[in-house]
């Protein structure tokens, strides 16, 4: 129960949601953060080197 209370205190969910409202855009902060994380992950997947990539190219 102690751990549960600790985690609940870290991320209080018992509030009204927070939203970004900019012209036509209306999105909750939670969804906006997830969309940003997806974009960051997508760019990182394109740029970060894959382990063993050079070795595979040599063996091609």
């Amino acid at each position: 129960m102690g751990l549960y209370s600790f985690l609940a205190a870290l991320v209080p969910l018992n509030n009204y949601g927070h939203y970004i409202h900019w012209h036509w855009l209306y999105v909750s902060y939670a969804n906006f953060i997830v969309i940003c994380l997806m974009i960051v992950t997508f760019v990182a997947a394109l740029l970060l080197p894959f382990p063993g990539r050079n070795r595979r190219k040599e063996n091609r």
């Binding site: 997947a45 970060l48 894959f50 990539r53």
Partner: peptide, 11 residues
């Protein structure tokens, strides 16, 4: 194929 060795193919 060698081009599959990229993180984008992991998803």
């Amino acid at each position: 194929p060698s081009y599959v060795s990229s993180w984008i193919y992991v998803f």
